[in-house]
Simulated assay, not measured.
Amino acid sequence: MTANEDQEMELEALRSIYEGDECFKEISPVSFQFRIGDLEDTKAFILDITWPETYPEAAPQICLDAFFNNRISAETKQLILSKLEEQVEANLGTAMMYTLFEWAKDNQEALMENHKPVVTAVTLTSSSDMTSTTSAAKKKEKKEQLTKAQKRRIISRTDNKGELPRGWNWVDVIKVGTFNLFFPLPALNQT
């Protein structure tokens, strides 16, 4: 059999074995992800495995760089990879994906024995810090309030041509307009 025929047969077997299994994900016909452990498990990890063109005669590429694995220390990742590479060497020349996945599931506790979750730095701000910054922002947004005397002075000022600002008499026009609403206008040319 050629490498491609072996790959096709193994791919078909993997699809039938892991059909509906949420731990198995086929990225492409030669690239797969398999989650070892439950999502809530702190010792769970994801294996990324890619077949080279000459697989199964050549070793598959195993990677632990998935975002899910960011909480695993570099030392633990190296231990997992070295143990899996031992299994690859033992099974070289045969279809080994199922064997690798099952071996990793069976040996998860041993692989993650020295696992200490990596804590990423997260900056937390207290609610009092948040309150002080929002209140400062509100103070900046608040416009300056003018007194009545300040408003009168602004209105009575004239511009550089000696003219009052536009709209200085609008208040009077509005008053006259409402006055006229209550009294009928004289009739024009009633002949």
Results as ranks from 00 to 15, higher is better:
91 N>Q: 03
91 N>I: 05
91 N>D: 05
91 N>K: 04
92 L>W: 01
93 G>H: 05
95 A>V: 03
95 A>H: 04
97 M>W: 02
98 Y>Q: 14
99 T>H: 15
100 L>D: 05
100 L>I: 08
101 F>K: 02
101 F>L: 05
102 E>N: 15
103 W>S: 06
105 K>W: 00
105 K>C: 07
106 D>N: 14
107 N>C: 02
108 Q>F: 05
112 M>E: 00
114 N>V: 01
115 H>T: 00
115 H>A: 06
116 K>F: 02
117 P>Y: 03
118 V>H: 00
119 V>D: 10
120 T>C: 11
121 A>K: 15
122 V>M: 10
123 T>P: 01
124 L>A: 13
124 L>N: 09
125 T>I: 15
125 T>H: 14
127 S>M: 12
130 M>C: 12
131 T>V: 15
133 T>R: 15
134 T>G: 02
134 T>A: 14
135 S>D: 03
136 A>K: 14
136 A>Q: 06
137 A>L: 13
137 A>C: 10
139 K>S: 02
140 K>F: 13
141 E>N: 10
141 E>P: 03
142 K>T: 04
143 K>I: 04
143 K>G: 04
144 E>D: 02
144 E>P: 00
146 L>T: 00
146 L>D: 00
148 K>Q: 04
149 A>K: 07
150 Q>A: 13
150 Q>P: 00
151 K>G: 08
152 R>D: 01
152 R>L: 15
154 I>A: 09
154 I>W: 10
155 I>W: 06
155 I>P: 01
156 S>C: 11
156 S>Q: 11
158 T>P: 02
159 D>E: 01
160 N>E: 14
160 N>S: 12
161 K>L: 01
161 K>H: 04
163 E>L: 14
163 E>M: 09
164 L>R: 15
164 L>N: 14
165 P>Q: 12
166 R>S: 12
167 G>V: 02
167 G>K: 08
168 W>H: 10
168 W>P: 00
171 V>S: 13
172 D>C: 06
172 D>N: 11
173 V>L: 15
174 I>F: 11
174 I>K: 12
175 K>T: 09
177 G>R: 12
179 F>E: 13
179 F>Y: 15
182 F>D: 06
182 F>Q: 10
182 F>Y: 07
183 F>T: 06
183 F>V: 08
184 P>Q: 00
184 P>K: 07
184 P>A: 01
185 L>T: 05
185 L>N: 10
187 A>Q: 09
187 A>W: 08
187 A>P: 13
187 A>N: 13
188 L>F: 11
188 L>Q: 15
190 Q>R: 13
190 Q>V: 09
